[in-house]
Design a binder for these strands. Structure first.
Lengths: 136, 136
DNA sequence: TTACCAATTGCAAACATTAGCAACTGAAGG
DNA sequence: CCTTCAGTTGCTAATGTTTGCAATTGGTAA
């Protein structure tokens, strides 16, 4: 039990931020948070959407619970999960915006590479113009 | 055969998002991004601020470079780094907001635990009062 | 009661990341 | 030339995370 302290009052803020982002750094957990951004979901509803076996989903839900990003509420024989903060939805949106930019940058880089003709002169290296669109 | 389909030919979006967040999930990298949020910094300027040995910082900068979150520009014998997107600054801000809420929630939980006298009644569970600003 | 279903937990193997050290490149100065 | 400084890269032991399986809990129905 050494590594993870439940609530460290003294941990530096950037350490906490890193742990926070690390919590988001898993496909299943992202998927869950996106689904919960739309509305509350029972585990049985999440299961087919994320396509992993129940035990695995439960583990990842536990991670999100420990990080206080979601809460589970028992209802009959099932458990319904929801976000603890609406800001999380915003965070995912901003992340997508950045990701779009990053991918655009990489696409441009690819194009630059492709623009270099096999045996002709040196790479032109166009001066970099940012992009407009943001698809889903 | 219907059912679990990988959704996209290329990497699914939530996979990319997870990788993106994982990139942020390290104290040194967070520290660097925060410093670069203020202004451009040379590696030699970052070094004393983050307090790790040069090789380690270089590795973490390489991670951020590969993720296309920062760019390095050689200037004389030093390298100056800057963010590729101003949105990153916003992301860190939103993250702090969420983190503040999360920590507030945990603090309340601690207080609840503390409020339970050794042999007296059940935990009172106060109804949730929103937060107070917090320093960087 | 027993059986079943939804969800969770514990554990160990497979996997990925981190951090420290030595070696290397490239530029500036003697 | 040689030396030094700023950064980077390669390698590897230590560490942390993921994930599949078995066992478990708690609720519901027969």
């Amino acid at each position: 039990m050494a590594g993870r302290e439940a609530v460290s009052v003294t941990a530096p803020l950037y350490q906490l931020k890193a742990e926070f982002f690390r919590t988001l750094g898993h496909p299943v957990r992202i998927r869950v948070l996106e689904l919960l951004s739309q509305r509350e979901h029972a585990v049985a509803e999440l299961l087919p959407q994320v396509g992993v076996e129940p035990a695995h989903l439960s583990q990842q839900l536990a991670v999100l619970r420990r990080a206080n990003l979601v809460v589970g509420r028992k209802e009959g024989s099932s458990v319904r999960y929801s976000l603890t903060s609406p800001h999380i939805t915003g965070l995912l949106t901003v992340a997508r915006t950045i990701l779009t930019g990053v991918l655009t940058g990489q696409a441009e880089l690819l194009q630059d590479l492709r623009a270099v003709a096999p045996e002709t002169g040196p790479p032109p290296h166009q001066p970099h113009q940012p992009r407009q669109p943001q698809p889903s």
